[in-house]
């Protein structure tokens, strides 16, 4: 059940320049899973729409969620000043999330499914919760995270759940280049891909995946976040039961789609 609700900031950290980490106590955590997102409201009446931010973590007791985001405008700028104990208004839980049960079926039955997680830039945070959930489900997780430079926020935390590789645009850590450069350089084999990042990266991953299933998490300007306004659509390969015009709603039919199903 979706709701608009008050949460409370438990902690706030700066992980890298412009990258912030909020732990928020909220009833929304009870139903939250990897790949889903919440809408975060500003306290500025001139900036009304909830800001969609992906869930980076759900606490083991299901009482809090973790949001790691980049300051990109006046909403996220305001959130970067939140302090422990502050109230924050949330809309959630939004979006479909990753289908762990389906991912478990994508290998051959003799060995654990090998899921390759690819995160680029601010697409890294949702991959962390996914690596945790998949490893708990018995999936072999290989994480390849891509950054601009040596500000490799969250990277160490992936090591707990996965074999972890890194790429950086400036070559300061790991493979110089993008996540696919790192996959090729390290000869990584896999059964399926889960990815979140900028659109050029997702397009390249769609092509790279070939016959293998790739789940990609999309982003678009959103208004309602609940599927009513039809603001955040993506062209799809097949007619969907809602729009009938091959326009899936990223906020509700997604944000996670099989790459073969979307035209990006």
């Amino acid at each position: 059940m979706k709701k608009k609700t008050e949460g409370r900031v438990l902690s706030r950290k700066c992980l890298a320049p412009g990258i912030f980490d909020l732990e928020i106590e909220t009833c929304l955590a009870a139903d939250a899973k990897a790949g889903q997102f919440v809408g975060v409201y500003t306290k500025d009446a001139s900036a009304l729409l909830p800001r969609p931010i992906s869930i980076c973590g759900v606490s083991d007791d299901k009482k809090s969620i973790r949001l790691v985001y980049r300051v990109a405008g006046k909403g996220t700028e305001e959130f970067s000043h939140l302090k422990e104990g502050d109230d924050v208004t949330l809309l959630g839980v939004l979006g479909n999330g990753y289908d762990t049960e389906k991912i478990k079926t994508l290998g051959n039955s003799d060995t654990p499914v090998r899921a390759l997680l690819l995160g680029g830039g601010i697409g890294v945070p949702p991959m962390l919760e996914l690596s945790k959930e998949l490893s708990a489900a018995g999936v072999k997780v290989i994480s390849v995270m891509g950054y601009r430079n040596s500000d490799t926020f969250l990277l160490d935390e992936f090591k707990k759940y996965s074999d972890t590789y890194v790429a950086s645009e400036d070559g300061s850590v790991g493979t110089k280049g993008n996540v696919l450069d790192a996959v090729r350089e390290n000869g990584i084999d896999f059964d399926c891909i889960c990815a979140c990042g900028p659109m050029p990266m997702l397009r390249a991953i769609k092509e790279f995946a070939g016959e293998k299933t790739a789940f990609i998490s999309l982003e678009e300007r959103m208004a309602c976040g609940v599927g009513a306004c039809l603001g955040c659509v993506v062209k799809t390969a097949h007619e969907d039961p809602h729009s009938h015009v091959k326009n899936a709603r990223i906020c509700t039919d997604g944000p996670v789609f099989e790459a073969s199903e979307v035209e990006i």
Binding site: L48, C229, G231, H244
Partner: peptide
């Protein structure tokens, strides 16, 4: 059925939005 316009279809403005 109408497919509608290309994205981005919405943006926020001061005290409101454009669609």
């Amino acid at each position: 059925p109408w497919p509608g316009n290309p994205t981005p279809r919405v943006c926020e403005v001061y005290g409101g939005m454009l669609n």
